[in-house]
Every structure is written in C-alpha cells, then in structure tokens.
Design a protein around this nucleic acid. Structure first.
Lengths: 155, 155
DNA sequence: CCAACAATGAAAACCAGTTGTCAATTATTC
DNA sequence: GAATAATTGACAACTGGTTTTCATTGTTGG
C-alpha cells in the first residue's frame, strides 16, 4: 500500500542522494582554485570552527566519520602544511591539531567566498522552507541512526 | 555579513551530508539480509522502475553517476546473476540490461520491505514538510549543478 | 564507400571513505 | 601498584566512486 507520504519520502531520499552528489562535485570545483577538495575543506572547517584545539578522534566524532578516515586526511593536511600538531599535555600519543598560519589564511579566503555564495543563493529560498528542510533532514538522519556496534565506543 | 538565511543554508548543507551518510549506512544494513548493498539496490531500482530496458550509459545517466561507475556495478550484478544482458538490436556493443528472474524476485522482496519502512517512518513527517523538503532539495541540487564539461556528453 | 568522429566497454590509477588488526599509551579497577 | 581494559595512531585491505586511456563499434559527411 503506497501511501502519499511514503511515496513522498521515497522521492525525498532520492532527491537527497542527488543533491549530495551535486554538492560534493560543486564543492570540489569551488575549492579547487584554493588547492583544496570538499573533504579537505570540511576538515579545515571542523578545526577552524571548534572552540578549542581538537585531537584526531574528536575531529572524527565531530564530522561523523570514522577515526581512521579523519586521521588519513589529517596526515595529508599536515604534509601540506595547512595544519600543525601541538603536543597534547594530557596525552603523549594523541596530539592536538590546529590550523597553521598558512592553513588559517587559506580557510579564511575559502570561507569568505563561501559566505558570498551562501548569501547569494540563499535568495532562492524562504527562511521558512530552509528551516523546515533543516528540521526534516535532521529527522531523517535520526530515524536512520544505526545502533552503534562500532569498535567499542558505546557502553 | 552572515545573514540568517545564509547561516540556515550552511546548516542545511551540513545536515544534508549527515543524513546522506546515515541513509547509506542504514541502506547497507537494510539490504544486507538480501545479500545487497545500498549501491546494488540503487541500480536494481533504477532498472526495475524504468519503463523499458536500459543500456549502461542510460542507467548511469538516470542515477547521476559516471558511466564507468555504473558499469562496474552492472558487471558485478551480472556475475551475481541478478541481471541479464539482452542483445541490443540497435547496438552490437551496448547490451540492454534487465533484472533476471532471480533479481526480479529479490528486488520485489526488498522493495516490499522498504515500502513497509517508508509507510512506518512516514508517520514522523507531515506531508507539507516532506513536500517542502523535496522541493528545497531539488532546488539545492539545481543551484549547484555543474557546467557539464564531461567527456563529450552534452552538446 | 570511406574517413573522421562519437559512443561504448574495459582496465588502470586514483580519491575518500570503511573495517580490521596491531602495538603503544592511557585509564580503570582491584 | 599491577593487571586489565579502553584509546589512539599506523597500516593494510576493501568498497564505491572518480578520471584517464585505449581498442572497438556506430554514425555521419564528403
């Protein structure tokens, strides 16, 4: 029995996949002039917008990706000199990460360009529609939350 | 100048990424009992719901992935016996794909389970909210459409 | 007809993520 | 304080996608 709402939900999920693909592709092109990719930009953002310095597992957590996945990008960004490690006073093995001078300047530039874009394309939406979409997306994510059976994270 | 709407847009994009991740993860778990993954399911769906038989490039187009990416999965699904090639009367090299008996039965089962889930979780949303979300997502996708400079697809 | 060009499948290299394993460090508990 | 458990970084293998390249097949124009 295909109800109206369940059909809408199916369509929404498909639209979500497509929007995700377009955004990643767009983000890659958008950040390419700065020598970045969507993935790198996302990590820089996570670090830049954090209120304090973060360890690798904290960054992964905050981004919703695996610890190892975040670490991979962190190592690459370190090689590129966009990040730097600080010794973690309370953890010998697990350094804190912050933007290097270079990384900070770069992120600043990208972020400013993004703000311009967001302000411009924001004109295509009503505040009401965006608020509803945001809420619905969060609900969808929550509804499809998987029981955490990862490494040994939860109790 | 961070307007209210551009902040909402940024938050929505982040929520979109997270929902996408959760859905893929959920889809993998959901289809695992049937021996599928999110990716395989998506391809079966594209073929099953098409009004006529499709070639590999058509399937890729319809899914919004690259020709080569779709081909990869098609070959795997062929190996698994879920699809079969039909000789294409108007194209020697480019066969048409359709679900095999086995693939058809499998998709039927998965799809029925999905319908149950969609009907159940649809209860969490109002029709209005879903419609707005669907529309907004399509608008986001459209706004971030990249100028096609691919192989030599577009005119 | 046939020469140029487009579309197709196949394969390889790569990107970005995942899980699993392992050794080392940190935290907990008795 | 020592044994045990959890956290962490590094590495390898895998998934699913991308682009690039190549040989082959269709298509089209002279």
């Amino acid at each position: 029995m295909q109800t109206e709402i369940s059909q809408l939900l199916s369509d929404t999920v498909i639209a979500l996949f497509q929007a995700n693909g377009k955004l990643l592709e767009w983000g890659d092109a958008f950040t390419a002039p700065y020598g970045l990719t969507s993935a790198r930009w996302q990590i820089l953002g996570a670090i830049a917008l954090a209120s304090h310095q973060l360890t690798a597992p904290q960054i992964a957590e905050q981004m919703g990706v695996s610890r190892q996945g975040a670490q991979k990008q962190l190592n690459l960004l370190l090689e590129d000199g966009l990040l730097e490690k600080l010794p973690n006073p309370s953890h010998l093995r697990s350094p804190l990460y912050r933007l290097s001078t270079q990384g900070s300047a770069l992120f600043e530039r990208v972020n400013q360009a993004w703000q311009v874009h967001a302000a411009k394309s924001g004109a295509a939406f009503t505040e009401q529609a965006l608020a509803t979409t945001l809420h619905t997306l969060r609900l969808i994510a929550q509804l499809h939350e998987m029981p955490p059976q990862g490494e040994h994270d939860e109790t």
